[in-house]
Nucleic acid binder design. Structure first.
Lengths: 138, 138
DNA sequence: CTGAATCCTTACTAAATCACTCAAGATGAT
DNA sequence: ATCATCTTGAGTGATTTAGTAAGGATTCAG
């Protein structure tokens, strides 16, 4: 039931950018503050850029900054698009459903579905702004 | 956030044994009913035996059966002991806590902790009997 | 206008994990 | 004894993870 370091690292990077909103931070800066290796971080920031959460400025004095307001960054969305579905099994996934041959009578699916729903609710109701303010949904 | 097939398979096996409580089922039987490959299932049943959930009878007409009442089989415990901690990150794990250098000020830990607590609550409040009866805690 | 700082792109890889298979041994019922 | 079964331990191919490495493209400062 682990989350990969990539997802963790992406959130760390977003948090650092959120803590310096408006400023442009170089990958090296972000690496220092997040303890994520530079060349790995490059890839992650590229992905976050493709997902629209972040924008970049090239050349000297370039770097990254948030593209949107932290309140508009949905943590569930970030995790899902970086790591894949939130559901613990394909049969319980909404975004990446995969049928299972046991499904008609499966006694486990309700359990997996409940876990998916609960995790998704927490993650999708949390925004970057919530994390920055140490505030949670509900 | 996936669960491995090993955990799923173990629960499938326990469910089949629970549906035939009192009887001894051979690995081949269980494999037929769970669609888990025989030789993989062997290993999983061995582990379940070591964990005390299941007992075996060797020799001809041998096989496996539940050791305890289904109401006493805690799903969270099975998952945790077969797959490792329920927490999404080591810093949020109670049974396998791992310190993190960012921890004192980490903005993510409260999120991971909340996910751990929620998942653990669902899994630990659910027993094999609940699954067999299509009933959930609460 | 040149060079340094930075992002961008692609390729590669070592290690771990997953999901098994296989072979041979031990045990018990008939 | 024989055969069905569990037991034990080793081995393996595929995939994923968590990076590294090398060079190219762009922008800014001087």
């Amino acid at each position: 039931m682990k989350i990969s370091s990539k997802g963790e690292y992406a959130l760390r990077a977003l948090l650092v950018l959120g803590q310096h909103e408006g400023k442009v931070l170089s990958i090296a800066d972000i690496s220092d503050k997040t303890l994520v290796p530079i060349s790995y971080l490059e890839q992650i920031l590229l992905q976050l850029k493709m997902l629209g959460h972040v924008k970049s400025k090239r050349g000297s004095r370039g770097g990254y900054s948030l593209r949107t307001n932290p309140a508009d960054v949905n943590i569930g969305d970030v995790i899902r698009r970086l790591e894949g579905p939130l559901a613990p099994m394909g049969c319980a996934s909404i975004t990446s459903y995969e049928p299972c041959i046991l499904e008609p009578t499966c006694l486990l699916k309700p359990l997996w579905t409940r876990i998916r729903d609960t995790v998704a609710q927490i993650l999708e109701e949390t925004t970057l702004a919530d994390l920055l303010d140490r505030r949670f949904s509900r």
